[in-house]
Every structure is written in structure tokens, then in C-alpha cells.
Design a protein around this nucleic acid. Structure first.
Lengths: 103, 103
DNA sequence: CCGTTATACTTTGCCACACAAAGTTCTTTT
DNA sequence: AAAAGAACTTTGTGTGGCAAAGTATAACGG
């Protein structure tokens, strides 16, 4: 079944949240992600590292004034794999809505 | 963010597969689920038990001839929660497709 | 009648993973 | 000098997925 083809790295909820936020915004900083997702910073950092290690996002360390401000964005590869994931999800959704019986 | 409201019990891939198959077919037996999902029987049994323990599916033990044939179907509660899950997923998908920039 | 096969599990063992909480480094602000 | 903020890392703990093997019941084949 096609559901099992869903990328397990992306399928995890927090990471799916990160990926879709980045898809919409293009680029986001640590604080924004943390606030949007409502997770602890340690937890967020770990998920970000998983995504980076798999080449799905890139990290850009910069400064706002003299404060560090790290921003994150999808890599082309991450963008591509997210699209595949979302396409499969859309197809699953459509087939789930189709042909429903009873209740 | 809304992604974190996705029901973790349903979100797991094999269980999502079971639930959507049952939504479409109404009722399925163990062998069909196993074949469709391509998982081991032990693995399938465990996921089915999780779903049953959470009240999302009901189990009906019957016989085909004199062979045991267990069938599974969504409970009303399972049906309701799957709908909520799918609705949230659809909204996430729509918002992800909206407003995409670059690449 | 006895070994094999099928169904539907349960049990065992293992590794990965999610998460919280606390610690760390560097720097800025007061 | 002290406190606070950013972005982590480390540690600890519990849960979870999965494969593989074992189990109970019953049918089938020779």
C-alpha cells in the first residue's frame, strides 16, 4: 500500500511542521519555529539536526546586530522530497474520501 | 501549530493504512490487511491491538467454513476520529500548497 | 494417525526515537 | 559583576516499531 511509501523522516509530526512552515515562509529563524510549534528548544534542535543530517534543510548562521540568529530553509532536495510526501498524502486523502460506506 | 493536533495513534503509518483501508472497505479480514500493507503478521497484530485498545476498531471473530476468519471494522468513535484526522490533514495540505515561494 | 499447513495471535529482544530537563558557550544588557 | 538571551548539547527515560520465533487451534494429506 502506498501509505508505507510515506517518507518516515518527514512523517514525524514536529518535523512535518518544520518542513511545511519552511515551505510557506521560505526561511525562518529558531525562535519563530519554536514559538510556532510550541516545543522546547532542545527538542526543536534535535529535529532540526535530523533534517539537516538528511540534507532536507540548510542552516544559515548569521547575526542580528551582534546577537546570533540562525535561520533555516529547505534545500532543493528537501523541497523535492516534501513535494513527493505531500503528493502521496493528497492521493491517500482523496482515496480515503472516495467510496466511503456505512455510518 | 495545528500539525501537533494530529492524533498520534492514527498518525503512525501502518495504523493510518489500516484505518483508511477500513474506511474504504467497511470491513476487512486479517489476511487482506496483511497482504495490502505488506507487513508481518506479528507487526500487524500489534497495531490492530493498539487500535482496538483505543476503541478505534472492533474485532469480529467468525469462521469461513471451519477456518477462523477474523474481520475488523471501524467503530463509530474510530470513524469520527479518523474524519477529524483527515480534515486536519487536508487543511495542512491546503495551507502548504498555498503561498509557496522560490524554487 | 501423524506430520504439515494455515490462521491469528503472543512473546521476546532490540534498536531507534521522542521528549523533557538540565547543562553549556558565547555574548549582550543592566 | 550579574542576569539574561540565543542556540545548542547532553543526559535520562520511557515509549514504540519491527522482525523473528513461539503458541493454540484446527484442518488437510497421505
Amino acid at each position: 500500500m502506498e501509505i508505507l511509501d510515506l517518507d518516515p523522516i518527514i512523517h514525524e509530526r514536529v518535523r512535518l511542521g518544520i518542513m511545511t512552515l519552511l515551505l510557506q515562509a521560505g526561511e525562518l529563524d529558531f525562535q519563530t519555529l519554536k514559538r510556532e510549534l510550541g516545543v522546547t528548544d532542545g527538542n526543536l534542535a534535535q529535529h532540526l539536526r535530523v533534517l539537516e543530517e538528511h540534507g532536507l534543510i540548510r542552516v544559515h548562521k548569521a547575526f542580528a546586530g551582534r546577537r546570533p540568529r540562525t535561520t533555516y530553509a529547505l534545500t532543493p532536495e528537501g523541497h523535492r522530497r516534501l513535494q513527493v510526501y505531500l503528493d502521496r498524502l493528497a492521493r491517500i486523502l482523496k482515496s480515503a474520501r472516495r467510496k466511503r460506506g456505512s455510518i
